[in-house]
Design a protein around this nucleic acid. Sequence first.
DNA 1: TAGCTGACTCCAT
DNA 2: AATGGAGCCAGCT
Length: 124
Amino acid sequence: MKKNEHVKINPNYLRIWQTVQAIPYGQVACYGQIADLAGLPGKARLVGKALGKVPDDGWQGAKVPWYRVINSQGKISFPVENENFNQQKAFLQDEQIVVIGSRIKLTDFQWQPDIAELLFKLDF
DNA sequence: TAGCTGACTCCAT
DNA sequence: AATGGAGCCAGCT
């Protein structure tokens, strides 16, 4: 199939991608945090699924910074030295985020969104 | 339809 | 800090 016009995209993925786009440069968020902000509490694993399907060319004209999402323990959720792991780590370090091994200090880099502002921006 | 899977979390060691 | 187990739940086969 060449065209994707009849390919149905899970609407939850769209909300997740949009929420991830709101993570500021130089900061990170957890899977569960994104799920909550996207209005999908308890569905952290779905966030991982959605990120695995992020369009390479971005969504709605903007890139989706999937690499700014890590797990609740402050670690990159790919096996160490795996190709994806290395790419994610490199992207994060490019944003001045300190990554030690697979670990990032959440106390220093975790995104603390202003809920009111975010809800307005995301328009759910 | 019924299992299986996993870019998760939480809690105990 | 690292490791393991149980719970979790939408998607996928």
